[in-house]
Amino acid sequence: MADALSEASDLSGGEESQDEDVLTPPELIARLEEAWLNEKFSPELLENKSELVECVMEQLTHMEENLQRVKKGDLKASIHRMEIDRIRFVLSSFLRSRLQKIEKFFPHVLEKEKSRADGDPSFLSPEEFAFAKEYLANTEVYLKAVALRHMPPNLQSVDMLKAVPEPCLDSFVFLRVKERQENILVEPETDDQRDYVVDLEEGSQHLMRYRTIAPLVSSGAVQLI
């Protein structure tokens, strides 16, 4: 994938590399793949990656435009077309995972957003936030219109925060360590076990409770696989 991509950047004329702090296309796609796997395997919604998504979208548009200039029937063209399709798949799958979690946990996602301190990064992109709000309103209106308004006065509302389950942070995830970690506290599985600490070596792979390593996922120290 990387080869075709660096070619893609040749095709793009290399304008982007002039901006400082801008990723090369292969780096950009590597970031996208990391974000994608993390989002796919974490039980809760992770921080939004709006900027990354925007860059990948721009990259795709760029590649499409360049493709128009390549002669038809050129073998290069089909390789690039294929590359576009693959990036679009990863990007769509990533955004799909996020949207699925937003729908599954919408009251909790919105609550988290409400209680977020000023300056803290938002978990939702502005567009996702709008979507979640509409989803909540739409669902509440529906429940009310079909049944709740016909119920006795004290039963005309359902607390969505209590009704819709929260993400299960105790589920287990596979992970690969990117930066060595010391003294990670592991909680006991059963009453006759005690908690203990482990060191996570760089490059090692583990199966652990998500809750234990959630901060390491958001800091980028471990990669879910």
């Binding site: 799958s93 995972s97 699925q100 009704a163 819709v164 389950p165 105790d170």
Partner: peptide
């Protein structure tokens, strides 16, 4: 994978019940 679009509310874990789980 994300091929099945209908994802029902799962039952609660342990002693918990999920209000909306069939």
């Amino acid at each position: 994978m994300d091929t099945q679009s209908y994802m029902p509310v799962p039952p609660g874990v342990g002693m918990e019940e999920n209000f909306l789980s069939l």
